[in-house]
Amino acid sequence: MHKKYSKNAKQNILPGFNLSLGFTIFYLSLIVLIPLSAAFIKTTELSFNEFWAVVSAPRVVASYQLTFGASLIGALINAVFGLLTAWVLVRYKFPGKKIIDALVDLPFALPTAVAGIALTAVYAGNGWIGQWIEPLGIKIAFTPIGVIVALTFIGLPFVVRTVQPVLENLEAETEEAAASLGANRWQTFTKIIFPAIWPALLTGFALAFARAIGEYGSVIFIAGNVPFVSEITPLIIITKLEQYEYASATAVAVVMLVISFLLLFAINGLQWWVNRRASALS
């Protein structure tokens, strides 16, 4: 007596698959997918030439340059100092370490508007830090440098939190082996430690970069928002919205969305690769 079962009746006998997956897809569609598709559908109101005219207008292009340039510099600063921070937190003991470790996540937890006004207060010409730097001829608040400061702040935890666990899980033995073979500390770092952590570093960098591109709240207070100089792309979208130019606001939004999605896929691919590499190595 043979009973036939459909191939799709999966081996798993735990209940609730249809309910949980059904609800997941329903909720995902309702909250995320359908609303996001509205942006793409809205742009079809514009002809391609109109679309192109909007997204390649000089003021919009200047905002791309600022947004991507400042995000890139912010992410690079975070790559360097995030790596240092992760290293110090994992390897060294010093007073207040636990508090510092917890504070690294502050940019995740602090509302961006608060970060924005706080950074402005600190880095303005009469601020705690600004008053020391302005006499040197460097203006931070209300210039593109201010944008970089804000984007560095909001991207700060990413590199630290991606590199930290990898550093923690490095086996002391490999470093001891390197030392026993005659390598000095710097050689051990460049030849043993860095090759192990650079994929995580790259992931953290990409995450910080992606986060910075879309950032709005912390930037607008410190940026000064001067067209062609310190105006970021999300602000362009808001400005167009306030002038009821929905289609052109959406056109710029679509450009940003496409870039963000590409980054997301790249990051997911990167993380997949890192995980596979990690499991292959272990």
């Binding site: 942006a39 992606a210 979208i237 939004a253 997301l264």
Partner: peptide
Amino acid sequence: DLPFAVSPVIAGLIYVLI
């Protein structure tokens, strides 16, 4: 993960569009 990748401004915009 998509909502993490979308600028908050755009998150607001899409609901205005609908």
